[in-house]
């Protein structure tokens, strides 16, 4: 019931199944103050970090860096990123739709806000030009009158 209100559908390029959690609830992952992650993490849902992360985070929902949470690495949140008062985010790239940074937070990186979600999958698929028969027919007719034989320089008098 409240599932549909959690994330506006218009923000999501690829609709995330709401029942991605084990019990039909949206995923919510918490890294506590004593937790530590080195590497990459992709979450279909929300992520809350109060521990230490060295690596790349991506979540289809919200990411919150709270308490004394420290994140060193790129962060992508399809919805919202919150950096709390005592939290720290040192990133190369931060891609989010919404951003809240509390006074006192440590925050640096290249911030891109907006419809970045649609851009992310693009590099994965190679761009193959599809030749449509409809388009191909038109130039084939037009190309015909082009000079087939090389015109010699001296033959051209004026």
């Amino acid at each position: 019931m409240i599932l549909s209100t959690r994330r506006p559908a218009s923000r999501l390029a690829t609709p995330v199944p709401a029942e991605n959690g084990a019990n039909g609830q949206p995923n919510s992952v918490v890294l506590g103050p004593n937790d530590r992650l080195v590497g990459q993490l992709y979450i279909e849902g929300d992520l809350r970090v109060s521990g230490t992360v060295d690596g790349t985070l991506e979540a289809t929902g919200d990411i919150e860096i709270a308490g004394g949470g420290k994140v060193n690495g790129d962060v992508t949140a399809y919805n919202r990123l919150t950096v709390g008062r005592d939290a720290s985010l040192i990133a190369g790239a931060v891609r989010i739709a919404r951003l809240t940074v509390a006074d006192g937070a440590t925050f640096s990186g290249k911030v891109s806000m907006g419809k970045h979600v649609a851009e992310a999958p693009k590099p994965a698929e190679p761009v193959v030009p599809v030749v449509e028969p409809f388009v191909a027919e038109v130039p084939s007719v037009v190309v015909e009158p082009a000079p087939a034989k090389p015109v010699q320089q001296k033959s051209k008098r004026r």
């Binding site: 940074v101 006074d103 440590t106 925050f107 911030v111 907006g114």
Partner: peptide
């Protein structure tokens, strides 16, 4: 040196702090 961003604000650019 310090940064506060309220929800709803839009930022595109590089942030350096300190």
């Amino acid at each position: 040196r310090r940064l506060q961003i309220d929800d709803g604000a839009t930022l595109n650019g590089h942030v350096r702090m300190g």
